[in-house]
Simulated assay, not measured.
Amino acid sequence: MRFFEKMRGSGTCPPVVRPLETLSSFLGSLAGMALLGWLHAKLADPAGLALLIGSFGASAVLIFGAPKSPLAQPRNLVGGHALSAFVGVSVGLALPEPLWLTAALAVATAIAAMHLTRTLHPPGGATALIAVTSGPAIRSLGYVYVLCPALAGALILLSAALLTNALTPGRRYPEY
């Protein structure tokens, strides 16, 4: 117990989150992910597309749970996913094998591209990785993967984040 008391007193613990912030994060992520899931079930999946990819769960943590983070801003969210998807598809087409090298090159190139364009968004690395390691349904999309799910999903999450954060007193999103 002393260990945690010492940590709390030394300022090394993260700040306590207000209940309203927690509720806003919960409701925003619920709305954003539910909307993505619903649109996937109703529109994307019947058309042979995907709209739900794992990296969007990580994006939800950033844009709803840490909306002040530079990595959660709209430019980073949208640009990071779209650019990383483009990089992932390009690397996957240029170097389909060996998969371990393709995956590493896709993620590393996506990070470099996001740095160069000032769109760094950590879930973008997963978006690039998904482009090269997922099954045939995603890989067969080719560059359509950039538009759907990457760009479309990011825009849907952004819409939910703008609405949710605007309705929460004391929250400002985007920061810039």
Rank of each mutant, 00 (worst) to 15 (best):
M1H: 14
F4S: 13
K6W: 11
S10R: 14
V16T: 14
P19N: 13
L20H: 08
E21A: 15
T22P: 00
L27D: 04
L27G: 05
G32Y: 11
A34H: 14
L39P: 06
A44Y: 09
A44M: 13
P46H: 12
A47H: 10
L49Q: 13
L49K: 08
A50C: 11
L51Y: 01
L52E: 09
I53N: 09
G54H: 06
F56Y: 11
A58S: 14
S59L: 04
V61D: 05
L62F: 11
L62K: 09
L62C: 08
I63N: 08
F64H: 10
G65D: 11
A66K: 09
A66I: 08
P67E: 08
P74C: 11
V78A: 03
V78M: 02
G79V: 08
H81Y: 02
A85D: 06
F86H: 10
F86P: 03
V87E: 02
G88V: 01
G88L: 04
V89D: 01
S90Q: 10
L93T: 03
A94R: 07
A94E: 02
E97N: 03
P98T: 06
T102Q: 06
T102S: 11
A106E: 01
V107A: 11
T109F: 09
A112V: 15
A113E: 08
A113T: 12
H115W: 07
H115P: 00
L116M: 14
T117H: 03
R118E: 09
H121I: 07
H121M: 11
H121R: 08
P122V: 11
T127I: 10
A131N: 02
V132Q: 03
T133R: 02
T133I: 13
G135M: 11
P136A: 15
A137Q: 15
S140C: 06
Y143L: 15
Y145H: 14
V146A: 07
L147P: 00
C148R: 01
A152Y: 00
A152D: 01
A152S: 14
G153M: 01
A154I: 00
A154G: 00
L158G: 01
A160H: 04
A161G: 03
L163E: 01
A166F: 06
T168Y: 00
P169C: 12
P169G: 12
Y173Q: 01
P174G: 07
E175N: 09
